[in-house]
Design a protein around this nucleic acid. Sequence first.
RNA 1: GCCGGGGUGGCGAAACUGGCAGACGCACAGGACUUAAAAUCCUGGGAGGCUCACACCUCGUGCGGGUUCGAUCCCCGCCCCCGGCACCA
Length: 848
Amino acid sequence: MPDYHPQELDKKWQKRWAASRAFEVTADPSRPKFYCLEMFAYPSGHAHVGHLRNYIIGDVLARTKRMRGYNVLHPFGWDAFGLPAENAAIKNGIHPEISTRDNIAHMKGQLQRLGISYAWERELATCDAEYYKWNQWLFIRMFEKGLAYRRKSSVNWCPVDNTVLANEQVVDGGCWRCGTPVETRNLEQWFFRITAYADELLDATATLTAWPEKVLTMQRNWIGRSEGARVKFPLEDDPGTPIEVFTTRIDTIYGSTFVLLGPEHPLVSRLAEKSKDPVSFKREAQAFRVQDRAARLSGDIEKQGFDTGFRAINPFTKDPVPIWVANFVLGEYGTGAIMAVPAHDERDFEFATKYRLPIRIVVTPDGKPAPAGVIDAPISNYGTLVDSGEFSGLSSTEALTKMTAFADAKGFGEGTIQFRLKDWGISRQRYWGTPIPMIYCEKDGIVPVPDDQLPVELPRIAQFTGRGDSPLAQVPEFVNVTCPKCGGPARRETDTMDTFVDSSWYFYRFADPRNERQPFDPAAVKYWCPVDFYCGGVEHAILHLIYSRFFARVFRDLGMVDHAEPFTQLLTQGMVLKDGAVMSKSKGNVVDPDSMLEKFGADALRLYVMFVAPPEKEVEWSDAGLEGSFRFLSRVWRMVENWIETIAGEGVGHADGLVGLTPAERALRRKTHDTIRRVTGDIEQRQQLNTAVSALMELVNELYTFSEQTVTGGPARRNDEDVNRAGQVERQQTVRVVREALEALVRMMAPFAPHTAEEMWESLGYSDGLAAASWPAFDPEVAKADEIEVPVQVNGKVRAHLMVPPDIAEKDLEARALDDAAVKAHIAGKTVKKVVVVKGRLVSIVVQ
RNA sequence: GCCGGGGUGGCGAAACUGGCAGACGCACAGGACUUAAAAUCCUGGGAGGCUCACACCUCGUGCGGGUUCGAUCCCCGCCCCCGGCACCA
């Protein structure tokens, strides 16, 4: 064997894999499938180590599953539409199409140099018309079903990116991409009716047993279900127009001493007209409205309000209560109006205290009427109702049901479920995205582009101005069309779709990526999907992952998919930090994988990233750690090198059983099989890839120890003349046991260090390649070991050890313990009360 | 405030969920080999005590209790860190 030059191995094996199409697959119902997917990449230009971690995790799993006999689909693609490319075009004049293709080419090279086992023939990019055509097709299906609709609404606007943002894309009051505080605008926009699935999306989180708890919690919070009631408070002087409020605490309604309208509430402007001073009324309401968003989201803004001068009737008490407008009532949640109960709600209490509004206690912990006088804090817990008419004496829980039923019976209220989740606004006033396939005709209104005219191709435009309007609107040949219905003049929609539409179903397209007649063949998806293992950053916990769950249900309801949940298992990998911070170009702390590959080869990098910590944990990059992994690979290489002459050849045969082996040989066989068990379980069951690598390291250490004991001087010691000492070994059993250990080791290293493993595999005499080889077989009998050391605890302290056969019966174990001199010494003169044996291990003797 | 996840050597971590705490690695120290260095191989290491030494003893998984022959793991009460949501009625 030559010296270890990983860079050459990388090239050699990557070429071979490509030539043999080693990772391409076809559906085969006779074999179990495994769909392993990493979140596809935005082609930003260069992948740093943090990105690569994701792909390496997926690759370890994909390679292992392949060796374990699964038909593995492991594809990759590009989330290629998006703002950065367009912004770059505005800045430097390079068309997004060109920069995107360049970036894809470069990043693809990086992934290939890492030896990730992708089925590249299935590669897709969302900016290809053959892909986004199906975004448009699906949009039209959703339009037909009422799941896509257009309405004017106030939306989040990012003044830097010059576009609308979905609620999910507003993070801490700012744009998810650039952090700029968002503004509010009123625009005609397209929405996807994700709220139609709110209940299902929430309930089904319980079925996602292989998702991280953290992500499920975030999704549940985001959907935000609350059960309550809508109750009508009629206007005192106009009982025909009631104010409808949403409350989760109808049990406190007798304590509702005023009503609050959000500044956006439609009634506000009507009351203003009727008021004594409409001008100042409107001015104040307007002041609250512009306060919103940035200010409201930025933290504790002081509660403010003003009295409208009008009153509403509390339908339970029949008392007239004042109507105020308040800045903290959200127009977009519930009905945009609330019944204020200052005695039992923090916010209402604060408001009532400030404006000296009446506070009425109607729930107390013990059901005793509250003493008159001022309270200094609201009672927000459940309790027993007091001063609540016929409902007094009920517990809050009982009252919620009974009072809701009462309101329902009387016709002024009903039980309802309120979600925080809102419909997904998908219109973007930008160029580099999927054109929305809609046409506006004066006569026929909104008309979808007929299917046979899809795709609506993105026109190639030359100038990127960065002005805050849709670039497509400046292309007359795009805008002006004839109406598909009447043939008259019409104009196209000029907004493009949110790029999260592209990424909400790409995993289905991978199952059938070149289909020209439909988004995918349902049969192909039925075989491959759902995705068995999905890996990506936690930053998509609510964006991409909730949209994809929504789309899966849309496809299901179109009859194209037979499941609701697209991703069976989810792993959110931790970020790779450098100097305690996330890597980014602007911070200048990017670890460039290309130079690492140059220096240590792909395998050392892969191994290090897998070994340093469990996949979902954040890690700090360490050059020394990478060198350590390189050392390990060299160490394995030397081990194989030293034994290769001895163990090569057809006639070696296989190790079998433990009879006739020396203790050292038995120990090595045991270690080999114990390692197989651990590595297999760590990868497949737990995705604890760091401990899988540890187990491999232990096996290598064991091999060194074995060699040291078996062969004088041991292998790989100092000078070259010592190197082939292993050649002196003549004992057939030794050769077999070592060969078995090395074969198992090399196979199990393949997912982590595929190039090195392939080369060693070849030098072991196999010509068909590891990619097609199988995982080493586990022999539980061998792993069980022939004689084991059993700790003996006396009163909870380990006092001695017994050497016993592994299959010793419990009573024999007890007997042997009581017979053993060392144990006897510890229990001398005492009475044995109890002997505890756990899983065949004697662990405790309780004496008095 | 609410929800979720965590606190284990100098550091990253492990203990496959009640059975020898600290595997594996990084950094460090010592030795072998070398004219020397690098590389390599071997050895050491939680803290404290006691030994010439082998050994042995005590304490030790954020803090305080509990259950158990036995607790990093289970229960109760705290403290701290990280992440998410947050005037959602």
